[in-house]
Design a protein around this nucleic acid. Structure first.
Lengths: 354, 354
DNA sequence: TTGAAAGCGCTAACAC
DNA sequence: GTGTTAGCGCTTTCAA
């Protein structure tokens, strides 16, 4: 690998001149510039950003750590962040924490040590993110809040979203509504549960813990939670799944158990799938302004990267919207009970509910 | 931001000792080690990987450049690469080229200049990737070949896959089969078209250029191609879409035009959706061993990262499998023609076919 | 307009 | 065991 020194030697100039050519400094005689450029091509030289970074402590790279790359919600987020980054001359490097704090920390450290200009993160855990506390680059949280950290944050009004979903089912006459939720140590999990409970309470219903299962944001979690709910003596007549992948898992479990949606079970999901309309039936769900969430997060980071006085950290809360489609229907007295899956074939695991 | 010097000063040792502590060198007296560790915490010091890299020219980071982050095929690939990388103690940084050569080059340069240990790339363009030619780190191509570059490569047998799909439709009695293909400058596009043509020729049919439309690997491309095909005087009775997102676009166009699948149009796709079973009808498609493709690519890179003599570049070709489900059905004399979308509402664009 | 030289933060001989 | 020191490849004064 060629270095600036070799280029300088080959072009018969000083390294300073090569550097000037590299940085498009205008006051280099065109003859020297030519010589340098030729040497660069000849030696197949590419400047070491590492060495450069060593001197000028600023990079045009930002990092984004998401929690699940196979989730379309997050990939849409990535697209938004990427668009804003490119508009501003930044490159985006991505890490996938896989909902795993250890991996998240690893990515965080790699990015921090690469000295990227800033980091956007979907924290896999909203509290006790000790390593995030000593962060030396601008940090913005997206989709999920980080407890007690005063940083730029953009999230959805999750309580409202879950409330709208649950309330919709209640107004359809359902009284036993299963929640396929997520762990409370992720703000999204906590808040969506709060919205669910709020709607129930408002309708004068008690919280029935047996109707609440906590999944892992992935399809498998929604699948298992649904199988468990189907085994209840008093099966729910409606399900609210707190994210997109878990909704998918729920639908698969329902399909396998030959529970017809919405005839035998109403289902409301969270997050839109752009291909939802091809599903049968089309899915009633809480839509988030996904692209906008990513966009605003990126813009907050860009703002913070400008030089000038640091702006006060901002919390942006965006609004969800309930999209009523065909997977939810009025409650009716239960039809002959659908076939229950064979108990022995169930992979039961301990419920996370305390 | 603290430096190693400050830590040394604060702990009353030399920078060498701090460095030894950092690198877990065992021959440091535990007392000094304690002092250093305390200083590190106190100063909230995090070593600069940039400076480190300057000395030891090797990093535990690899890069992966994919062409479309919203495509589930590529995110599954990412998961595979990630798993192998982590098993081997590497961290994976991701870039999304968005099927755009310029962006791809940008990511490539950033990763190369950050001096990652190696790069895996889904080239957005299979020829004339001049910047890839002077690559100083190990490079492996995945999903798509790069013309004339002798590097580790793992791809699917695309000709076979497309052949299987088309042949299946032919055996069902279809004679006018539309191809929703992809540009020939991407190896996948070229090869899938070749497989399509091969099947037609084998059945004694001529290639009808009017039945061939080239999309962009995205939903929109499949959607537009399908609308165009539906406008033909002699509409095809079956469609083969050369990737997953374009299949989705095709299905949407068909749905909008009230063309029933498979009654009025058989459809075969490429790549499985893991949620395909929730679609109505379930999709006949060419399945690729997606995870394995990523896995092998990562393993090839890992192998090349070992020290020792460089192994000869390898070309791994994996096999597709046709999954016959409900979106393809035997040809039958055409039913009363479905409603044609209003011509004026179509966004027609020039066909890419030469 | 160009060159010489200092130094960014770290590691690895080498010396003690 | 620990400290001293010479760079890694670049940018950037400062002089010329």
């Amino acid at each position: 690998v060629a270095t600036i020194k070799q280029v300088a030697q080959s072009a018969n100039v000083s390294t300073a001149t090569v550097s000037r050519v590299l940085n498009k400094n205008p006051r280099v005689k065109s003859e020297l510039r030519k010589r340098v450029e030729r040497a660069i091509v000849e030696l197949d030289y590419s400047p070491s950003r590492v060495a450069r970074m060593m001197r000028v402590h600023k990079s045009q790279v930002i990092g984004l750590i998401i929690s699940d790359i196979v989730n379309p919600f997050f990939t849409a987020l990535v697209r938004a962040v990427e668009d804003v980054a490119h508009e501003n001359g930044f490159t985006l490097l991505l890490g996938n924490s896989d909902e795993n704090s250890a991996k998240e920390q690893m990515y965080f450290e790699v990015l921090a040590e690469e000295r990227v200009a800033g980091i956007i993160i979907v924290p896999s855990c909203s509290d006790d993110c000790s390593y995030l506390r000593h962060c030396h680059v601008p940090l913005v949280a997206v989709d999920r809040k980080i407890e007690g950290m005063d940083i730029d944050t953009v999230v959805l009004d999750n309580v409202l979203g879950a409330y709208l979903a649950t309330n919709h089912l209640l107004e359809l006459g359902h009284r036993r509504i299963g929640l396929i939720g997520a762990p409370a140590y992720v703000s999204v999990g906590l808040e969506r549960r709060q919205g669910y409970e709020k709607a129930l309470l408002k309708h004068g219903l008690a919280i029935d813990e047996s109707l609440i299962r906590l999944g892992d944001f992935k399809e498998r979690g929604g699948y298992q939670a649904t199988r468990e709910l189907l085994l209840l003596d008093q099966r729910p007549t409606a399900l609210f799944a707190a994210n997109n992948l878990m909704t998918l898992g729920a639908l698969r479990a329902l399909q396998e158990a030959h529970v017809a949606v919405p005839q035998d079970m109403s289902v409301v999901g969270f997050d839109d799938f752009h291909w939802g309309s091809l599903m049968q039936p089309s899915l009633t769900s809480v839509r988030q302004p996904t692209y906008q969430i990513g966009q605003v997060a990126a813009q907050l980071l860009m703002r913070r990267l400008q030089d000038g006085p640091a702006p006060a950290p901002e919390l942006v809360v965006l609004s969800p919207e309930l999209m009523i489609r065909n997977s939810s229907a009025p409650f009716r007295v239960h039809s002959p009970r659908a076939i229950v899956p064979d108990r022995s074939s169930l992979f039961l695991h301990e419920s996370h509910v305390g």
